[in-house]
Amino acid sequence: MIPLHWYLWLGSVVFCIGMAGFLMRRNIIIMFLSIELMLNGVNINLVALSHYMQDLRGQVLTLMVIAVAAAEAAVGLAIVIALFRNRPTVHVDEITEMKG
């Protein structure tokens, strides 16, 4: 029997790697991939807690997270395409039109 803490630590490590990727990378597509990574870390934690606390609510919440992740990927990538049509770059540090 694996302790609950190991699963929670695994989920936290995945979350923090995703967070580091989101803050470090300049390519906007990899930033979206990092968000997916963070959501997956949270999902591991939710499923682990759901199993060890013997309640299915965590897994229901995981389904909601997966639905929101799909919606976020669709809208985010549409924004990337619209952005690339106006300015051919995916580097976030070159997109400075809204700077005052």
Binding site: S12, M19, A20, D93
Partner: peptide, 23 residues
């Protein structure tokens, strides 16, 4: 071009701090 923004050491430090706090 390089894959990382200029401030990546600060970003890594923030993520490590969050990791230590959560663990």
């Amino acid at each position: 071009l390089g894959p990382f923004t200029g401030g990546w050491p600060a970003a890594l430090a923030i993520a490590l701090a969050v990791l230590i706090t959560v663990v």
